[in-house]
Design a protein around this nucleic acid. Structure first.
Lengths: 226, 226
DNA sequence: TTGCGGTCGTTTGCATGCAAAAGGACGCGC
DNA sequence: GCGCGTCCTTTTGCATGCAAACGACCGCAA
C-alpha cells in the first residue's frame, strides 16, 4: 500500500504518531465500540500504512488504557464497566488535584486568562445540540490541559496519560445534563479562584471535588443504565 | 538471526515482552548508562531477535520514562537530573500514598504478614556488601509492590509504572547510607501499622513522608555530587 | 583557523514475506 | 444428538529488504 498519495496533508512526524493520534481519536469518538476487535490489516488500510506502525500505535494505546492486547489474539477496544470508570476517575482526581496544586504556585496571568476564556466559552453554550456538546467537551479538555501544563511536571503529565482517555459516549451523557454543566462551570471558576490566589489547598480541593463529582455522576448513570 | 538457540530458557510470551523485561532490567541495573545510545541492530543481536520487537520494546520503555526516543534520531537511555528525580518522586509520593490509603481498607492478613517479612528481612541485612545492598533494594521493591497490589486499582498500578523505574546507581547511594536504611525501615513499619489499623490517613501520610524523604535524600546527594 | 557545502556511511522507519497460532467448519465416532 | 479430532482460514508476530534521513567527514574558501 505504498501509493498513499499524500492522504490528508498528513500530520508531521512519523507514521506511528499519525496512526496513534488518529486511532485514538477514532476510539474516543466512539467510532469503534468497546469490545470491538481491531485488526491490524484493516487499520493499516484505513490509515494508508502497513501493519508495522499500526501494531506499534496499538501498543501505545494499550499503555493509555484504551486498547487491550492479548498475545496472538489481537487488540480490542477496551470496555469500561462502572468499576473501571470509578477507578479511573479516582486516579484522575488524585493526579489532577496535584497538578492544580502545583499550578497554583506557577501559573501565569496569561494562563489564568485562558482559563477564564474557557469558562466564558462554556457559559455561552446552551442547548443540547451535538455541536454544543462537542464544544463543551472540547472546552472542558482545554481547561484541564491548561492546568496540567501549568503544573510544569513532565512526570505528572505522563502519569495522567494513563487515565486521560475515555470514549466520548460517556462524556456525552455528562455534558447533556444541565445541572452537571452548571456544576462543572462553577467548579472550574472555583479552581481558577484558587489558582489566582496562589492557594495550593484551594486549587487542589476544588479540583478533587470536581473530578470526584464527575465520577459520581457517571457511575450513577451507568448503574441505572443496566 | 533466526537461529536463536533458545537463548536463556526464554520467558514465556512474545519476543517484545522478553526484550522489554530484559532491556528494562539492563537499563535499571546501570549496564547502559544514562545518555547512552540504544541502537536497534545491536540490541536485536544481543537479545537474539530482529529489530522489530526491539523497536517496540523501546517504545514501551519510553512510556515508562526510561528511554527517550526522537524520530529519525534513535533511542537513548534517559538521564536523570536532580529536577527530574524530584519530579518523579513527587508523583510517586502522590500515587503510592493513595495506593497505601486504598490498601488500608482491603489488605489481607497474608499481605500484612508478607510486609512484616520484608521488614524482618531488611533488618537482618547489615554491612555494605554489594549482596547486602542488592537484597535491600529487592526487599524494598517487594514491600512497595505488595502495597500497590493490595490497593487493587489497575489504573493506579498503570500510572505508577510511569514513575517506577530509576537506574540502580541512584538506589545504591540510598541503600548504602545507614541512617537512610534505618529511616526506611522505620517508615515501612509505620506504614504497616497504618495498614493493620485500617487507617487510610495513617497509611497515606506515612507513605507520603517515606517517599518524600527518599526524594530529599537523593536530590541532596545529587546536589553535592556536582 | 574557522565556517560552509557536498559526499558517504550508518541507522532509522516502513513495507512485506512467511511461519505458526487461534478459531471455526466439518465430519466422524460414540 | 453431542463431543471430539482434523483441516482450513484468518490473523498475528517476527525477520528482512529498502528508501530516506541524519550526521560525520572532508575539502575549500574566506
Amino acid at each position: 500500500m505504498q501509493f498513499m498519495a499524500t492522504v490528508t496533508t498528513t500530520h508531521p512526524g512519523t507514521s506511528v504518531e499519525r496512526v496513534y493520534e488518529d486511532l485514538r481519536a477514532a476510539i474516543i469518538s466512539g467510532e469503534y465500540e468497546p469490545g470491538e476487535r481491531l485488526r491490524a490489516e484493516a487499520l493499516a488500510e484505513r490509515f494508508g500504512t502497513s501493519r508495522t506502525p499500526v501494531r506499534e500505535a496499538l501498543m501505545l494505546l494499550e499503555g493509555d488504557g484504551l486498547v487491550g492486547i492479548e498475545p496472538r489474539r489481537g487488540a480490542v477496544v477496551r470496555s469500561f464497566d462502572p468499576a473501571d470508570l470509578a477507578d479511573l476517575y479516582e486516579v484522575r482526581a488524585v493526579l489532577e488535584a496535584r497538578a492544580a496544586g502545583l499550578a497554583a504556585a506557577r501559573i501565569t496571568p496569561d494562563d489564568l486568562a485562558a482559563l477564564e476564556a474557557t469558562c466564558d466559552r462554556a457559559e455561552s453554550q446552551t442547548g443540547n445540540s451535538a455541536r454544543t456538546v462537542d464544544t463543551l467537551i472540547a472546552t472542558n479538555e482545554d481547561f484541564h490541559r491548561i492546568v496540567i501544563a501549568a503544573a510544569g511536571s513532565p512526570r505528572l503529565s505522563a502519569a495522567l496519560r494513563t487515565v486521560a482517555g475515555i470514549p466520548r459516549p460517556f462524556k456525552t451523557v455528562f455534558w447533556n445534563d444541565a445541572s452537571e454543566r452548571a456544576r462543572s462551570l462553577a467548579a472550574h471558576r472555583e479552581i481558577i479562584a484558587g489558582l489566582r490566589a496562589g492557594s495550593t489547598d484551594r486549587a487542589e480541593s476544588a479540583t478533587r471535588l470536581h473530578v470526584l463529582n464527575a465520577r459520581d455522576f457517571l457511575t450513577e448513570v451507568m448503574r441505572e443504565r443496566d
